[in-house]
Every structure is written in structure tokens, then in C-alpha cells.
């Protein structure tokens, strides 16, 4: 099976994406998983723009409404033990009702815990990660590269995480 990346997009948007000029990228980085999965500590990262309402404020969706070509580049840490009722949502490009009914569709903490319980995964990390996937049009990625992601990497190292499962929305 070949995945149609544009199956759920209006044709007008597909055309915009396909016409986008893509800069050549350097070699694909690669870090082998240093140990078996059943001895590895795993963290999750979503671009669903969610946050923990008990410890953080939300992403700046109000500014994006005023400035449609801007997207909030900040990041949020989501504790593994977050309760569903405490998940803040507000992403302006998807239907957040689905996330509100089940966080696992973007950040499958419960599923990861089950795999740990089955002995398939070594451990679930203490902290997980959220950004707002829309970074403007065209995307401005400097703040992610120089601030948000390095901050995440520092926390990943402090938590001794072996691998990250990232899921854009």
C-alpha cells in the first residue's frame, strides 16, 4: 500500500503544498537505538498544541488569529501522569473534540504504559512534549531549532530517554 499524503486535503491546498519550494537537506541523521526496545525508555512528542492546564498557560492562539502568517513556536512539557481533564487544547487547524474525547489519538500515553506492562517497552518517560505544529506560512523554524528543541533535548537527556515517537497532526 502506498500512502496518499493528500487524501484528506482539499485539492486547492494540495496544489499549494506540492508547489512549495523545498530546500535541499543535508544527510539524514541517524542514531541507532542503543539497546533492545524492552530495555529502552520512550517519550512521546505531539504537534497538537496541547498543554497541561495545571502547570502551564496555553499556546498563543489569540496572536495567530490576529497574525495568520504566524504560529507560536514555544513548547510545553506534558507529564506522563496527566489526567485527561487537565489537557488544554486549542489548535486552530484541526478538530480538537477528538483529542478531548481521547488524548491517546495524539499522545498515546495509556497505550505506551500498556506496552511497558507487557514487557515490550522498557519504560515510559516521566515527561512528554507538545508543540503547535503550525509555524506560519511559509514556516519559520528558527525558534524551534534554537530554543524549543534544544530545551526538549535537555529534558530528554536529564530523563535518560532512549528514543522519541513523534506524531504531527
Amino acid at each position: 500500500m502506498e500512502i496518499d499524503s493528500f487524501r484528506y486535503l482539499p485539492r486547492s491546498l494540495e496544489r499549494l503544498y506540492r508547489d512549495a519550494v523545498v530546500a535541499a537537506v543535508a544527510k539524514t541523521p541517524f542514531t541507532p537505538l542503543g539497546k533492545p526496545l524492552n530495555q529502552s525508555r520512550i517519550a512521546l512528542l505531539t504537534t497538537a498544541g496541547i498543554w497541561d492546564r495545571t502547570r502551564d498557560v496555553g499556546f498563543d492562539y489569540a496572536r495567530e488569529k490576529r497574525e495568520p502568517f504566524w504560529g507560536d513556536p514555544s513548547g510545553r512539557i506534558i507529564p506522563a501522569a496527566i489526567e485527561g481533564d487537565n489537557v488544554g487544547t486549542g489548535h486552530l487547524h484541526i478538530n480538537n473534540l477528538h483529542i478531548q474525547s481521547d488524548l491517546n489519538i495524539v499522545l498515546p500515553l495509556d497505550r505506551l504504559r500498556e506496552l511497558v506492562g507487557q514487557g515490550i517497552v522498557g519504560a515510559i518517560a516521566k515527561n512528554h512534549y507538545s508543540v503547535m505544529g503550525y509555524q506560519g506560512f511559509p514556516p519559520h523554524l528558527a525558534a524551534w531549532e534554537h530554543e524549543t528543541i534544544p530545551h526538549f533535548i535537555g529534558q530528554l537527556r536529564a530523563d535518560k530517554v532512549d528514543a522519541v515517537v513523534l506524531a504531527p497532526v
Binding site: 500512502i3 499524503s5 484528506y8 542514531t31 541507532p32 537505538l33 542503543g34 533535548i153 530528554l156 537527556r157 530517554v161 532512549d162 528514543a163 522519541v164 515517537v165 513523534l166 506524531a167 504531527p168
Partner: peptide, 8 residues
Amino acid sequence: IATVVVTM
């Protein structure tokens, strides 16, 4: 740190 992306 090893990564894997799940994406539509």
C-alpha cells in the same frame, strides 16, 4: 536520541 515519526 533515536526517533520515529508517525505521520499522515
